[in-house]
Amino acid sequence: MASQDVLLKVENLTTSFKTDEDQITVLDDISFNLLHGESLGIVGESGCGKSVTALSIMRLLPKPAGQVEKGFITYKGDDILTLTTKQMHTIRGKKIAMIFQEPMTALNPVHRIGKQLGEIYQIHFPDMSEEDSRTAQIDILNKVGIPAPEKRLREYPHQLSGGMRQRVMIAMALSCKPDILIADEPTTALDVTTQNQILNLMRELQREIKMSIIFITHDLGVIAEMCDRVLVMYAGKIVEQASVNELFASPRHPYTKGLLDSIPRLDTPSKSRLEVIEGLVPNLKNIPKGCRFRTRCDFEIEQCGVTDPVVEAISEDSSRTVACIRWKELSK
């Protein structure tokens, strides 16, 4: 981490979705900082709220169902949540960009790559000439490692392979040199060897552009390779926050421990039993009182069901947090 400046600050963010019957709180009072130039990983299982965190920051929650109930998202002194739509246009895509899991659904199938890339320059740099825009497009495609970019500009998304499409998505996201890149499961749909290429590319580009990355994934291997710091989410809450080395070396929350123990690794003997987290993720409509993880936790005591565990800072600079009332005795 080059400097300790906070680039994006999320405070007490609570987001809910309306359904026909009731309102479901999907993010419940989450707070974290994104520092300058760092890669922050968000890890958790389906439905834990990782993507909703990203969409809340981008103000892309599906309307009218999704709604930020309370909290602040401060980017360079401005609260993103109070900006007008017009002001948001100058930030979204230009300062904070996003790439998605499935590039085929994020790209428009009926427009050529060149048109979709050109659109970004049209919107964010309206004064740019057609020719300059074309040069910039070719440059950025070169940068993300797409061979013969002139030819690719005239092609449609279906003519590209999955890996190439994701490269195009990255090119689109980086074309304005954003401060923050939010990558939501960017390699989940790709094969391992392609994933490896894309992760390498992202690492190189981050070094070059010096942006901060929020890396959302369920794959702890990807987290270990890509991130400086990690947030672990469970059922709409951040249960633990730590530097990547600390998290893997000494996980404090029982959920993080369970998660780390349950992945099959190449160096464990074949056919051995895996550690499991019993049970299922609770339904967000029907969250257990107190700690949300307690129904699956091996260390549940009566107290766990009484109150929500507070997010406790457990390192001197308070960069490491855990939300478990028993973390101290369990880490002995």
Partner: peptide, 12 residues
Amino acid sequence: ALLSSIPVPDPE
């Protein structure tokens, strides 16, 4: 190549 492409859950 396949083996070395797999992200290993160990930051060290």
